[in-house]
Simulated assay, not measured.
Amino acid sequence: MKETRTVLESADISRALTRISHEIVESNKGVDGLVLVGIPTRGTILAQRIAEIISRIDGSTPVAVGSLDITLYRDDLARNPMRPSQPTEMPVTGIDGTTVVLVDDVLFSGRTVRSALDALNDHGRPKVVRLAALIDRGHRELPIRADFIGKNLPSAKDERISVRLEELDGEDSVTIS
């Protein structure tokens, strides 16, 4: 049996998301024209949490949040069984001319983000696209990097990083096994 160790607990995740939120506001020079778009499933939850934190930081109107299903844009559909698609929900104001921050739980090879960029193009043309990830574990196969990172977590390719969030899993934690 493989050993599983917890690398982030609830308080650690909360601090990481608060730091990411501050960095997003600073980078964008406020919240005007800012849209957070989560990659289902956990990326969407993280985007909603970041939007709540930004609203508390900035005290202004809520940040628009969307969810972007990338299932049909993946380049591994032939090798991996297709998982059920999730709903794509873009803000009613759209994303044209906005600063979109894609949010995902774990950045690994970069292929999920590449798929998300392709899918995003079908919904509009943002002014800028940034990437926020709770965990960056390395092992990139594509030239993609996160602009906002909760924690760099170097790992072996055969290790598994699991992000658990209260809304889905009943607890907040990140484990490696």
Score class of each variant (00 low, 15 high):
71 T>W: 07
26 E>Q: 13
85 S>K: 12
95 I>W: 02
132 A>L: 08
118 D>M: 09
81 P>F: 09
146 A>N: 08
164 R>K: 15
171 E>S: 13
55 S>D: 12
114 R>C: 11
62 P>W: 01
23 E>P: 02
69 D>M: 05
126 P>E: 08
171 E>C: 13
164 R>E: 15
124 G>I: 06
145 R>A: 15
95 I>Y: 04
148 F>S: 03
91 P>V: 04
161 I>H: 08
127 K>Q: 14
53 I>A: 01
35 V>R: 03
147 D>S: 12
113 V>D: 00
77 L>Y: 09
29 K>N: 12
143 P>L: 06
56 R>S: 14
102 L>E: 05
167 E>Q: 15
71 T>C: 09
116 A>L: 04
118 D>S: 09
104 D>V: 08
22 H>G: 10
109 S>P: 04
169 D>G: 06
25 V>R: 03
94 G>V: 05
39 I>P: 02
148 F>R: 01
10 S>T: 14
107 L>K: 03
177 S>K: 07
25 V>L: 11
89 E>S: 13
81 P>C: 02
171 E>F: 12
98 T>P: 05
167 E>V: 12
136 D>I: 03
135 I>A: 01
30 G>M: 10
78 A>E: 14
125 R>Q: 10
7 V>A: 04
122 D>C: 00
5 R>N: 12
104 D>F: 07
103 V>H: 00
121 N>T: 13
108 F>T: 11
80 N>W: 10
21 S>M: 01
130 R>W: 08
141 E>S: 04
138 G>R: 07
120 L>V: 01
109 S>K: 09
132 A>V: 09
44 T>S: 14
117 L>K: 06
89 E>W: 01
5 R>C: 09
25 V>M: 10
66 G>E: 08
65 V>Y: 01
17 L>A: 02
114 R>F: 10
150 G>T: 03
143 P>R: 02
6 T>C: 14
125 R>H: 09
61 T>E: 14
94 G>S: 06
47 A>S: 03
165 L>E: 04
110 G>I: 08
27 S>H: 13
62 P>L: 09
68 L>A: 03
97 G>N: 10
157 K>A: 12
88 T>G: 05
172 D>P: 08
116 A>E: 03
176 I>F: 06
25 V>G: 02
115 S>G: 15
158 D>P: 00
101 V>K: 05
154 P>D: 10
42 R>W: 00
5 R>M: 13
65 V>K: 02
37 V>I: 15
36 L>M: 10
125 R>K: 12
72 L>C: 08
107 L>S: 06
155 S>F: 09
119 A>H: 06
160 R>Q: 10
107 L>A: 08
48 Q>D: 01
150 G>E: 05
21 S>P: 03
98 T>G: 07
23 E>M: 09
55 S>P: 02
27 S>F: 11
126 P>H: 05
164 R>C: 11
31 V>W: 01
27 S>M: 07
126 P>K: 03
152 N>D: 14
112 T>G: 05
86 Q>N: 12
114 R>E: 14
18 T>L: 13
23 E>L: 10
92 V>T: 11
85 S>D: 06
94 G>L: 06
25 V>Q: 05
136 D>E: 12
90 M>A: 04
2 K>W: 11
141 E>R: 06
84 P>E: 14
